[in-house]
């Protein structure tokens, strides 16, 4: 397997205001290629806004640069949650099809992608649930499907916004293993995470965001009791 590195990402002087509220202010951060970079911080600190900025979904100021090493520029994104009407007649396969191919989902999943879709759903223990209604899935199963769509086609940049919500222990271990494998394959992973103990184990680098960048570095160096106490006690 050819290991193709993911991108390096730079935020320089990043600012973001929504309805006169300052969400991010003069944030400078570099995310190295092929690393698992966790974002931590109190709720409302701007972590999700930071990744949305990276996806080009906000009216930010400052400079956001993605340094791609080659032409393969696939980004996988797992949102925090997805609101689906209970009555929406959409199967798991329809949902994944809608996310991974450009042509309309009602035309069916293309042959090129059908193999990797089956493989990825099986990898996430969703084999046999392709025809299940997406709206009928449990919270954990939905997260698995959301995760699956982000892995197809194989991403070089994987952005995860609290993917472990509603996930049981087995599922969390499975997610962690897949994320680690992706990073080992060269993918850059940006992971918003609340489980600080898990961040210490899983992350190559960690950044704490509360409007500004409070600290960034290797978990062992920056996730000191003092740092964490100051941040989370003040929120």
């Amino acid at each position: 397997m050819t290991i193709s590195a993911g991108p390096r990402i730079e935020f320089e002087g990043l600012g973001l205001s929504i309805d006169r509220n300052t969400i991010l202010e003069d944030l400078n951060l570099t995310i190295e290629a092929g690393t698992v970079h966790c974002l931590i911080g109190p709720n409302g600190g701007g972590k999700s806004s930071l990744v949305k900025t990276l996806l080009g979904q906000t009216r930010h100021s400052g400079r956001v640069a993605i340094h791609w090493p080659d032409d393969c520029r696939t980004i996988g994104y797992v949102p925090q949650s997805v609101a689906i009407d209970k009555t929406m007649p959409m199967t798991v396969l329809d949902f994944v099809t809608m996310c991974v191919q450009q042509r309309p989902a009602f035309t069916g999943l293309g042959r090129k992608l059908s193999g990797i879709v089956s493989e990825t759903l099986a990898q996430l223990d969703m084999k046999g649930k392709e025809k299940a209604m997406f709206a009928d899935l449990s919270g954990g199963e939905r997260q698995r499907v959301l995760f699956a769509q982000a892995l197809i086609p194989k991403p070089r940049l994987l952005i995860l916004d609290e993917p472990m919500n509603s996930i049981d222990r087995n599922g969390a271990e499975m997610f962690s293993r897949i994320i680690r494998e992706a990073a080992q394959g060269g993918t850059t992973v940006i992971w918003i995470h609340h489980d600080l103990a898990h961040v210490k184990q899983a992350a190559d680098a960690v950044s704490c965001v509360r409007r500004k960048l409070l600290f960034s570095g290797k978990p062992a160096d920056v996730m000191t009791e003092k740092n964490l106490f100051e941040i989370f006690s003040a929120s």
Partner: peptide, 15 residues
Amino acid sequence: MSASAQTVIVRPRRN
């Protein structure tokens, strides 16, 4: 960096 390497600047969203 290979010849196809490229830096993409993420532009602010415009409507």
